[in-house]
């Protein structure tokens, strides 16, 4: 098939059914809300979702309304890994004891970057290490957005946040972004992937793959946040694409330890292009941007090497 034909064909394969209903309260242009919508399309209805505290929970579940068309539970901020372990175990035990029929229900955890790489890391690590059969989606908007744009360990170097402001003695975030997908890989789980709603079919494929694989699966979803990144809401998709095309956020999978780079760019676009529409980076001096450029290139090369790309 020619590329033009697939372009027309592929979107038709995606269900028109919405499992995450519209009418929620996310900001205009919210990359997280869009990602959740895509993820939920890929998940289908035979799932139970566990959600951490954060933007998603707050914009989707204001009593007495809910956007969730599938069973969904939120308890607190940092325990998604543990709650999902409990639900999966309950299902296993009840099926084994003949209390309910086995309908191949799937279990999914949702959390932000804070709920994943900071406060929820222990619970997630425990769940991955124990090998529960679940899919975990981290929606990474690179800060604690729900509480007002405070830095997380997933905030990129140099970015402004309300707790890493730039000033006479500060460039903004002074640490490099924690590599959460690599932490997941280090648990030797069968499936790890990165994704972005700017690449919706790739995202949905990865969610489906993660769901079908036996054992823990981790999908890290880059989710632009116009409110926190100080970027125009209409550029959310564009910014996601630029993150991938500049090598800032490469899309790859690690299947049973094997790396696969899904989109490879021999010529990465300059990170400046990615940073430009985002006012969280506007204070950065040329030398700091150069430093970021060098780091992105170095990391990208390392990833290419792991994926065996020459």
């Amino acid at each position: 098939m020619k590329k033009e034909e697939t372009d027309l064909f592929v979107p038709r394969l995606v269900t028109t059914e919405e499992n995450f209903a519209p009418g929620h309260r996310a900001c205009i242009g919210c990359g997280e809300a869009l990602a959740v919508r895509h993820v939920c399309k890929a998940l289908g209805r035979n799932v139970i979702i566990v959600n951490a505290t954060g933007c998603i929970e707050v914009f989707s579940s204001v009593l007495p309304q809910t956007s969730w068309c599938v069973p969904w539970i939120h308890t607190i901020f940092e325990n998604v890994g543990a709650v999902v372990s409990g639900i999966e175990s309950a299902y296993k035990a009840r099926v084994r004891k003949g209390k309910i029929p086995d309908k191949n229900v799937k279990f999914v955890g949702f959390a932000g970057d804070g709920g994943t790489s900071d406060i929820g890391l222990q619970a997630l690590s425990g769940a991955m290490e124990r090998g529960h059969n679940f899919l975990y989606c981290c929606f990474d908007n690179e800060a604690y957005m729900n509480t007002g744009i405070q830095r997380s360990s997933s905030t990129p170097y140099g970015a402004w946040t309300t707790t890493a402001p730039y000033g006479k003695k500060s460039i903004g975030q002074a640490t490099w972004k924690k590599n959460m997908p690599e932490i997941a890989v280090a648990h030797k789980i069968p499936y790890v992937a990165t994704a972005c709603p700017s690449y919706p079919f790739d995202l949905m494929d990865k969610v489906k793959r993660g769901l079908e694989i036996e054992g823990p699966a981790y999908v890290h979803i880059f989710s632009p946040c116009p409110t926190g990144w100080r970027s125009p809401p209409e550029l959310t998709i564009e910014i996601g694409r630029l993150a991938v095309e500049t090598g800032v956020f490469p899309l790859y999978e690690v299947i049973n330890g094997e790396y696969r780079l899904n989109y490879d760019f021999t010529d990465l676009k300059p990170v400046r292009e990615y940073m430009k529409p985002q006012r969280r980076f506007r204070h950065l001096t040329e030398d700091i941007i150069d430093k970021i450029q060098a780091r992105v290139e170095k990391e990208y090369l390392k990833l290419r090497e792991k994926a065996g790309v020459k």
Binding site: E78, Q122, G126
Partner: peptide, 20 residues
């Protein structure tokens, strides 16, 4: 479930109980 902490123990119990 040999959890990694009591925080997770209670969280897993909550999940399991919500799961019936």
């Amino acid at each position: 479930i040999c959890v990694e902490s009591e925080h997770s123990a209670m969280s897993a119990c909550v999940g399991a109980s919500a799961g019936g």
